[in-house]
Nucleic acid binder design. Structure first.
Lengths: 217, 217
DNA sequence: AACAAAACCTACTTGTGAGTAGGATACCCG
DNA sequence: CGGGTATCCTACTCACAAGTAGGTTTTGTT
């Protein structure tokens, strides 16, 4: 559907200049059409953002549903979701689903979005709880941990640019490792992933800011 | 200075409705003055945002400078900075320093902000490297770890509201613990913070979304 | 009191961007 | 070929918010 192309183009435009700094004329120009054409496919600028939102969130919801029936331990299932999460955030719609503010949406759409986010949040907490129960995850403050995970992953949308060094999948792996291992040194030799722990020590002293300005990564 | 009150009020307004959804008339009304009065204290709407930015970032920079001379191991120094970071993000200026986009600033100011952010990022990476070197931090991908830390902390600005359960300091502690321990279970008994590890298992099954909608936390 | 500087106001201009009216062209199906 | 539908256009309206012109009040100082 052409409508999808409109939404995708809008998502890229929003990600590039921000929602309020992107006029519908801009989007139209990127599509080589005029503004009324956009309105033929969508009713609102608001609805456009909403669509980006939902489209971006969808793969995460799917992943959450998928692991619900899996028989792996909680941590593995969580990791699966986190990887999909990272991919989604690094997609064209990542910016919209993460940065877009509910202030820019009407009450009803805002509530809809909120519901979707709550669903994802609860799904992650659920996996955490189950992981703790089956012993694959360290006992922890589930709520805060979910916030930390979501924050770290969401933030990817701020700094990730495609075709600049790492792929989204590599980033996902790196993050999973970081969250699994923790900063405090673990007794070496023991545990099952000593090998992996070694590969990840490749730290590059490149320039760039973790805080969220787009520059050299 | 009254100018500070203007900036602080602006910060709160921006945090509440977003930069573009906040008119200077709004800010003026919140201060019980009129728009031209704002322009008496500040030249631009842009400069207003810029000031919020710098004000919010300042305590983090200070903390980074402070730990530079400390003699503690890297992990302890990093934790100190992370705690200060969390406090800053949870402050009135948190939203501005985290969410505000460089798109809304002129080239020069944007560059200025970027420099400050790079400074903080590099400071964190430095602490990570030093921690790895002195053995207080697990070998890891320093760049990605800095991104994950910054992301998790920055995200606090999206969901934290003062006077709703946790204080900023408690959140900071929770996050530090999460990042220190990691999700993968550690061999019990050993290590120095078994006690702390117990206290943090207090997970409450409250409702709310980690993704960033403001509701019941 | 007198004067100046600081602080603040009312009443504008102006640009921009969302959204619309109404019409033209292209495409499809009998 | 003819009529209907889908797609897209030119040319507007309109509201809102940033920023300004120019004046008034308040405050401090000698």
């Amino acid at each position: 559907m052409k409508r999808d192309a409109v939404v995708r183009t809008a998502a890229r435009a929003f990600a590039g200049a921000g929602f309020h700094n992107t006029s519908l004329d801009d989007i139209a120009k990127a599509l080589d059409v005029t503004k009324p054409t956009i309105y033929y496919y969508v009713t609102n600028k608001e609805q456009l953002l909403f669509q980006c939102f939902v489209t971006g969130l969808e793969p995460i919801r799917t992943a959450l549903r998928a692991v619900k029936t899996a028989k792996e331990p909680g941590r593995e299932r969580l990791n699966t979701v986190l990887r999909q999460y990272a991919l989604a955030v690094a997609s064209d719609f990542g910016w919209c689903m993460v940065i877009a503010e509910h202030q820019d949406l009407s009450a009803s759409m805002s509530e809809h979005i909120r519901a979707l986010k709550v669903e994802i949040d609860q799904g992650i907490r659920r996996l955490l709880r189950e992981g703790v129960k089956d012993g694959s995850i360290q006992p922890c403050d589930v709520k805060m941990t979910a916030f930390a995970l979501a924050g770290a992953l969401n933030w990817i949308a701020h700094w990730y640019r495609a075709n600049q060094g790492m792929t989204a999948a590599q980033i996902a792996d790196a993050f999973v490792t970081i969250f699994e291992e923790g900063l405090r040194p673990r007794p070496a030799g023991r545990g099952r992933n000593t090998a992996r722990a070694k590969t990840r020590a490749a730290s590059a002293a490149e320039r760039g800011a973790a805080i969220g300005i787009r520059g050299k990564s």
